[in-house]
């Protein structure tokens, strides 16, 4: 139990540094600290698949983020926005935080999953029947590739769309075509 608190405090510290530091490269490195802390946390939460995926995605994401802030001048932008707007948004965010804490009290305590208390929950079926119905020893794989395969297909479509968007925005070719005069 203590390990969760230690890791969560580590992640929160890294997040605060990432938000408040002036240097953009240090902020990006702190995002890496958050990601690897989260990966360790997933490992201790008994989710090895998520931990492995998180490490891979974190490395790729760090490369993308470093790509944007390396060799760019004027990455130091100091000072917040207008004072009044900042105060109003901080007050609203604090109110959201208090309301959220109230809502979290209605959840079952940490360490007692909801599906254990409901006999016919979907997760209960997946755990009991996953191996027999799909033949996958890894129940996570049996959920994403068999019970909820359409979800996975849809999310692959979302990923594909995001990558197409990034490619179109970053493509150099269209700019040249636009600059040429019409024939």
């Amino acid at each position: 139990m203590a390990i969760f608190y230690i890791l969560l405090l580590f992640i929160i510290t890294a997040a605060i540094i990432a938000v408040e530091t002036k240097n953009l490269l240090s902020a990006v490195i702190c995002v890496g600290a958050i990601g690897f802390g989260a990966s360790l946390m997933f490992l201790f939460l008994r989710a090895p698949d998520i931990a492995i995926t998180q490490i891979v995605v974190e490395v790729l994401g760090l490369i993308i983020l470093i790509r944007v802030c390396i060799s760019r001048e004027l990455t130091f932008i100091s000072g917040p926005r207008e004072f009044f707007a900042v105060v109003v948004s901080v007050v609203i965010i604090f109110a959201i935080f208090l309301a959220g804490i109230k809502v979290l009290e209605t959840l079952p305590a940490f360490g007692t999953p909801i599906f254990a208390e409901v006999p016919d929950a979907a997760s209960q079926t997946y755990v009991e029947e996953g191996l027999r119905k799909t033949g996958a020893a890894n129940l996570v794989a049996s959920v994403i590739l068999d019970f909820r395969a359409y979800d996975t297909l849809g999310e692959a479509t979302v990923l594909f769309t995001a990558i197409i968007g990034a490619t179109v925005i970053l493509r150099k070719k269209t700019k040249k075509l636009l600059e040429e005069p019409d024939v």
Binding site: L45, R46, A47, D49, I50, T53, Q54, V57, L60, G61, I64, L65, R67, V68, P113, I114, F115, A122, S123, Y126, V127, G130, L139, V140, S142, V143, I144, R148, D151, T152, E155, A156, V158, L159, A162, I163, G165, A166, I169, L170
Partner: peptide, 28 residues
């Protein structure tokens, strides 16, 4: 432990990488 949130978060993490690439390309 519950396998259902793990399966859904697994795809959500990969999608977050795609959306990160999109946002960063807009920034560039």
């Amino acid at each position: 432990v519950d396998p259902l949130p793990q399966a859904l978060v697994l795809t959500a993490i990969v999608i977050s990488l795609g959306s990160l690439a999109l946002m960063i390309s807009i920034c560039i």
